[in-house]
Amino acid sequence: MKKVLTIAGSDCSGGAGIQADIKTMTANNVYAMSAITALTAQNTTGVTGIVNIAPEFVKSQLEMIFEDIFPDAIKIGMVSSPEIVEAIEYELVKYKSKNIVLDPVMVATSGSNLVENSAIKIMQEKLFPLAKLITPNIPEAEVLSGIKIKDEKDMERAAKIIYENHGCAVLLKGGHSINDANDLLYENGKAKWFFGKRIDNKNTHGTGCTLSSAIASNLAKGYTTEESVQRAKNYISDALLAMLDIGKGSGPLNHSFNINGEYAKEADNE
């Protein structure tokens, strides 16, 4: 079984962050591991508190993982302080990590800020060059590219700017009112569109975490970047179509929509 590591923050309500990553990786048939960068007090309506993990302890988590169960791919999510960014970079370089998918998380689905402004710049300097792929949404891509994105031409221009500035492939997610969930992959100087129909489901808490984790899972299994993106989009579409509806705000996806078996049937009968 392939192994995938998520380096991210914890979401106590289970819809995003580490919890969403582990659910997604398990559903995509890889062995999930985690290094937690922050604890958050949040639910589907918002974030009320963030406690960063000490950088040295983040390093300790990573060392224990790399020295025992070396990951075939890595997903990086919420990294909320410059010191934690530097700790992660040190370990990734030290162990010559591969297949890194970085989701530059800046704001939660609920609109709450998750990352210190000072961490964004150092993340670009330290972690982007190590990544195989980064997965910004429209607001994040506007920050990273320095341009306003109003249409698909702007998406292509922004993705090219980010690619040329940092040397990593870019999956620019178009779900923020630009189009019908069409995403743009910019890799090796070429643009590739992935077309998708917008699903009428208000419950999108953790979609970014889920997508990047699914991509990392498929890279670990040996698929190309393009194949991994398509397979991840298929997974997240099905998870949205399952129409899970829990929580008072923007609820989570049903990450386990395709899990069946003896124990599931037994539970259904209780």
Rank of each mutant, 00 (worst) to 15 (best):
G175E: 12
I162E: 00
K160R: 14
K160A: 08
M155W: 06
T210C: 13
E227M: 08
I120P: 02
A267D: 03
I50L: 10
E270Q: 13
N260W: 11
D21Y: 03
T135I: 13
P252D: 06
S212T: 13
N28V: 00
E56H: 11
S13A: 15
Q19K: 12
A264F: 14
D151F: 12
V51W: 10
I178L: 13
A20P: 08
G175L: 11
A239V: 07
G111L: 07
K248P: 00
E266Y: 11
I147T: 11
K132D: 14
K202T: 08
K160W: 00
V229L: 06
M1I: 07
K75Q: 07
P71L: 04
S237G: 13
D11S: 11
G9C: 09
N165F: 02
M64C: 13
G206H: 00
H255M: 05
E89I: 02
S110T: 14
I162A: 00
T135Y: 08
R157I: 09
L114E: 04
D103F: 04
G208F: 09
K2G: 01
K197Y: 09
V115P: 04
N113A: 13
L184Y: 02
K96V: 06
A27I: 00
K98T: 13
G17Y: 04
K173F: 10
I7H: 04
M33C: 06
A54M: 12
R231V: 01
K173G: 09
F195K: 15
S110Q: 06
E125I: 14
L171G: 05
K248I: 05
D183Y: 00
D180H: 10
H166F: 15
A16I: 07
A191T: 10
L184F: 01
A54C: 12
V58K: 03
K233M: 15
G222T: 05
G206M: 03
R198I: 12
K98P: 00
G208H: 08
L102F: 15
L92F: 10
L144P: 02
K248V: 06
T224N: 10
A73V: 01
T204I: 14
P82A: 11
Q42F: 01
L102I: 10
K3N: 09
I65Y: 04
D11M: 08
G251P: 05
K202W: 00
I246R: 10
R231C: 02
T45W: 03
Q61D: 08
Y235E: 04
S118K: 15
K153F: 11
